[in-house]
């Protein structure tokens, strides 16, 4: 029965042993600049930017929702561009300027997107919120730079930031509480203010 029995197990089960040519993980000295502040770290080479922020720097505002780039909860800004911090290794960002949700407010003054999220109730549980907010900040910069999206009719022109544009451009950020209509309202509102 043993041979037959194996067929009820899941095929493609990752081999227990690491591949022989896998290099052993190393501890890397690393300097990360987050929200304008330098952090000298010594990290396992496998550490993602997300885990470096959360587990080693103590900035837990950036959330882990799927660890596979599918939900957007871990969105941060690297050199002003939005990325999924779970899909990139910390070691790749020495010298980069990383901005997290903790770095958006200026002292007591919230970033206009943050304030708009509160006013429009653009969240419920709040777990996707830092990612939505960082994504919105990055997205508005892309739109201002004239980047088209999937729903832009004339990709050579400058798309007005319609609700459809906001929805399309924000679709990498899931919200299971489904605050979507309120998030769109918040971004629409804040987009008009001086960011």
């Amino acid at each position: 029965m043993a041979a037959g029995a194996a067929s009820f197990g899941w095929p493609g089960h990752p081999s227990a042993a690491p591949a022989p040519d896998d290099p052993a993980p190393q501890m890397l000295p690393l300097r990360l600049t987050v929200n304008g502040r330098g952090h000298d770290l010594r990290l396992d080479s496998r550490t993602t930017l997300l885990d470096a922020l959360r587990e080693h720097i103590g900035l837990t505002g950036t959330k882990k929702g799927c660890d596979h780039g599918q939900c957007g909860a871990c969105t941060v800004l690297v050199e002003g561009r939005r990325i999924n911090s779970c899909l990139t290794l910390a070691a790749m960002h020495e010298g980069d300027a990383v901005t997290t949700v903790e770095g958006l407010a200026k002292g007591e003054a919230l970033h206009p997107i943050q304030a708009a999220f509160i006013a429009h109730d653009g969240f419920q549980c709040g777990y996707c919120t830092p990612g939505q907010i960082c994504s919105a900040v990055g997205m508005l910069a892309e739109a201002r730079a004239g980047w088209p999206s999937h729903v832009t009719a004339d990709i050579a022109g400058t798309a007005a930031l319609s609700d459809a544009e906001i929805r399309e451009r924000m679709s990498g950020n899931l919200c299971r509480c489904s605050a979507y209509p309120n998030i769109v309202a918040a971004i629409r509102d804040a987009a008009g203010s001086d960011l």
Partner: peptide, 18 residues
């Protein structure tokens, strides 16, 4: 407005793992 709103939009509300 949610009274926990500010903590949530600034990333300062600590969830279990945090």
């Amino acid at each position: 407005d949610r009274i926990d709103g500010r903590l949530k939009v600034t990333g300062l509300a600590p969830y279990a793992y945090e």
